[in-house]
């Protein structure tokens, strides 16, 4: 068997995803709210209200609890001397190898939610692809960026 990547995303990442999931559920909330209001105003059948409520609660449930939890549970990464390995996916599990000598540059990025939890997103670009570790501790992300750019600089061969 191949050794699997074993590093996890910090637990705060899960919290951050839940929060952004909550923010995202505002949209279906408005939608369902609108439909319910219309249903009451125009005397639509009662099941419309039920359906709208169902829709909203299912959407929010998945976006806030199920998906972030599964995503967090599955995410693994590992940065080795020669390569970066990522493993992720909810229904389809993907494992990606990016050799260090193919890495062109590494960026870190932080939105307001990630910043509150001292997290950052790391993106790793090769000449043709972009890979992402969605949430890492800020210091670890910094370190990683430095580490990768050091290693990537060593091997500066063809493309």
């Amino acid at each position: 068997m191949i050794t699997e990547p074993h590093k996890r995303i910090p637990a705060r990442g899960l919290l951050a995803w839940r929060i952004s999931g909550t923010i995202h559920s505002v949209f279906p909330l408005l939608l369902s709210g609108g439909i319910i209001a219309l249903a009451i105003l125009f005397d639509w059948p009662i099941w419309v209200i039920g359906a709208a409520l169902m829709f909203f609660s299912a959407y929010a449930y998945f976006l806030i609890t199920v998906i972030p939890a599964l995503r967090w549970k599955r995410w693994r990464y590992e940065v080795r001397e020669n390569e970066i390995e990522l493993k992720r996916g909810i229904f389809v599990i993907k494992r990606t190898l990016v050799p260090m000598i193919r890495v062109q540059h590494v960026d870190t990025r932080q939105g307001p939610i990630l910043r509150k939890y001292r997290l950052a997103t790391v993106t790793i670009s090769t000449a043709a692809t972009v890979h992402e570790i969605p949430a890492l501790d800020v210091e670890e992300a910094e370190e990683l960026r430095f580490f990768i750019s050091q290693l990537a600089r060593v091997a500066d061969d063809d493309v």
Binding site: V92, K94, R95, L97, R102, T126, A128, T129
Partner: peptide, 16 residues
């Protein structure tokens, strides 16, 4: 090999 930028393998539940 040295021209491949990245390699990904994926498995869905059904494939597994």
């Amino acid at each position: 090999k040295n021209r491949i930028q990245s390699l990904t393998m994926s498995e869905s539940f059904f494939q597994k």
